[in-house]
Each structure stands twice: as structure tokens, then as C-alpha cells.
Amino acid sequence: MRKPWPIPAGYILTIACILFLTTAALSDIAIGRRLAGELSTFSSKMVLLVPCIFILIGLLDAWIPQTWIERHIGEGSGLRGALYVTLLAMFQGGPLYGAFPTAHLLQKKGCSKRNVFLYLGAFSSLKIPMTLFEVSFLGWRFALIRAAIALPVFILIAEIMAVFATDPESRLDT
């Protein structure tokens, strides 16, 4: 396991950013105001989404027994396991970075690597809420054809990842 930096890069960058914004505000630099605008748009969304995601992950962690995951979507769970993770992904929403915590949790609890990466693939493109958007702006034909072509590609990617991905790292667990 790698030794963590004394201060994570994220914090250093945050301080640098605050300093920059303060300087920009004091000396009236236009780009500072634009950056502040983008920051507030994006962070107003994250402030709501991120805590929700982690509350749900924590609850999943506490409620879903490891044995269930191992039996149904673990190694050797076959087609049914793949179907389960695809369905799980389809009924979720939000950006992909919100799915990493769930994927990691599944992996930690014994979900097979193949199914973890199939989950991420399905999450990225087969979510039902997003498909509704896709249908309304690009049409049924486009959405269905893209989904039908994407699924086998995701399965292939998951197979390759299952061979080459490193084992789950435990540095996120306390």
C-alpha cells in the first residue's frame, strides 16, 4: 500500500484556488469571476449529490450481506449475475463518478470483477432516465441501436478488465 502524502493535493489546490479567487476579486480580474461562477454552479450540485450518494452507500454497506453478493453476483455467478448488475445500473441515475463508490463497495463485498466493470459500463450508457432523454432528442431508433451495440461492447470490456484489473485495494477502508 502506498504511503499517503501528508497533505492531499486536493486540499493544496483548494487553498491555492481560494487565494487566487481572493486576489482576483480584489484586483478585479475578469477570469476570477468566471471561475467563481463555474465553481458555484458545479459545487451547488455536488453539495447535494455527494452526501446523498454516501448516505446510500453507507446504508447499502450496512444492509446488504456479503454472502448475498458473493452468491448472486460473485465469481461464477454467470449470466444471472450479469443481468442483476445491469438491472441495478439501469435503475440508477447521476454522473459516473457517483457510481465509483457503489462499484467499489460491490467489489469489496465479493462481487466478481467482471460484474463490477459491467456495472460501470451499464451505468454509463443504459440508465433508464438517461435513455428517456436520448429517445426524446435523438429518436427511438438511435437510442435502441446504440444500446443494443453498447451492451456487447461493455461485456467485452468487462471480460478484459476481469483479466487485467488489479485486486481491490483496501486503502479506502478504515
Partner: peptide, 26 residues
Amino acid sequence: RGLKSGYRMLVRLLPQFLLLLILVSA
């Protein structure tokens, strides 16, 4: 117990989320 484990994961990842926030905005 679930809330605590969720909170621990969030604290661990906070620097990365801040990094994401700033990189994207920049």
C-alpha cells in the same frame, strides 16, 4: 453503522472531490 461507514468514505475522498470540483471549473 451505515451512516458512520458512509461518512468515513466521504472524508477519505473529500480531497479528490475537491480536486474534481476545481479541475472541472477551471
